[in-house]
């Protein structure tokens, strides 16, 4: 591992000042992804700022919603009474990811910033990776691409975002609070991550030196009518092939007044399924309507040699997840 300087600030302002203009600085929270990438030589920071002691570890009511401090561990967020009782889909999604050990270490802010698990990105012995080395090409497009994207990808990158938590946050319309050298601002979850386009190395809309301080969840009176469905190669401790977060408000006769759907495992960012949402709002959740909405959402999907199965899988997952919630079988 390349040598780095280490700084453990006590306040948010110290952390932001410490970051300065340095290109090769990284904030380290739980470290579960960054340290792994440093071992692989994918990340080579010259300066590490350990934000693990910053006072960003509270979950509290915020207006009608809830504010989650950026350094709350994934475990503590999933277990918290406010989250479990108001936003159980977030608990479900967090607990569907990683392992207890990793969730104890990983922070909420860090989960937002985890990098793709594309094998070619992770292994520098492959020269082609536009995310690792801009302009070098993409080894996955003609390589083994079973876990890769079917929506929103570009000829430069077909990697997917690996987080479960972020899929739930996207369906919940969470807002990411950040603070940087130029002050504080809010970024809507749907605007936080980016599609790859011609700059797959730029994964979020965070500016240099900006630190995530909190994640805000808006009030959603029907938040309990929700479900996170994750489909993967083994029952536990595996990344999603496809996942669906659903939060909806349905009448007793099954008519859906409000529908929020986000997909994981299919794109470079958590994919808000706005087309399916629109198609379902005001409709009854019968099989035909659901299938048509899923078809519409995936109409522009494009698969590769090994991942085309994800297109049909995503459609069926949407149908199943919505059916589960409308039928009152959700885990919330």
């Amino acid at each position: 591992m390349k040598p780095f300087s280490y700084f453990c600030p006590a306040t948010v302002d110290e952390a932001i000042q410490g970051y300065g203009e340095a290109q090769e600085t990284r904030f380290i929270g739980g470290g579960t992804n960054l340290l792994d990438l440093m071992k692989m030589g994918v990340e080579r920071p010259a300066h590490l700022i350990d934000i693990g002691r910053l006072p960003l570890m509270k979950i509290s009511p915020h207006g009608d919603g809830v504010r989650i401090g950026a350094l709350i561990s994934n475990t503590d967020a999933a277990n918290h009474e406010l989250i479990r009782t108001r936003y159980p889909v977030l608990t479900e999604a967090i607990l569907a990811g990683a392992s207890p050990q990793l969730r104890n270490m990983a922070t909420m802010g860090g989960n937002l910033l985890q990098r793709t698990r594309c094998y070619y990105f992770y292994d520098p012995s492959y020269q082609e990776c536009n995310k690792r080395t801009p302009g070098s090409g993409c080894a996955a497009i003609d390589g083994y691409n079973r876990i890769h994207a079917v929506l929103g990808q570009s000829p430069q990158c077909i990697a997917v975002h690996p987080s479960d938590m972020c899929v739930a946050l996207t369906a919940l319309d969470a807002v990411v609070q950040v603070k940087g050298p130029h002050g504080e601002r809010s970024i809507n979850m749907t605007e936080f991550h980016r599609l790859p386009g011609d700059t797959p190395q730029v994964e979020t809309n965070l500016q240099s030196g900006e630190l995530i301080t909190a994640i805000d969840l808006p009030s959603i009176p029907y938040g309990k009518q929700s479900h996170y469905l994750k489909i993967r190669d083994r029952h536990s401790y595996a990344f999603a092939l496809v996942s669906v977060a659903v939060v909806l408000d349905a009448d007793e006769d099954g008519t859906m007044r409000h529908v929020r759907i986000a997909l994981g495992g299919v794109a470079h960012k958590p994919w808000r399924a706005t087309k399916a949402e629109k198609a379902l709002t005001g409709e009854k959740a019968d099989k035909k309507t659901l299938r048509a909405a899923a078809e519409e959402e995936l109409a522009d999907a494009h698969g590769y040699e090994h991942n085309s199965f994800k297109i049909e899988l995503a459609k069926r997952a949407i149908v199943r997840a919505v059916t589960t919630v409308v039928g009152g079988q959700q885990n919330g």
Binding site: T75, A78, N79, E81, R84, T85, P88, T91, E92, L95, A96, P100, K224, S236, N331, G332
Partner: peptide, 21 residues
């Protein structure tokens, strides 16, 4: 650690109705 987590009431991915404490 698992036993302590269970004692503290922490749910897992297979806990039914995890929205209820």
């Amino acid at each position: 650690a698992l036993l302590d987590e269970v004692k503290a009431g922490a749910p897992s991915a297979v806990t039914p109705r995890m929205g209820e404490i």
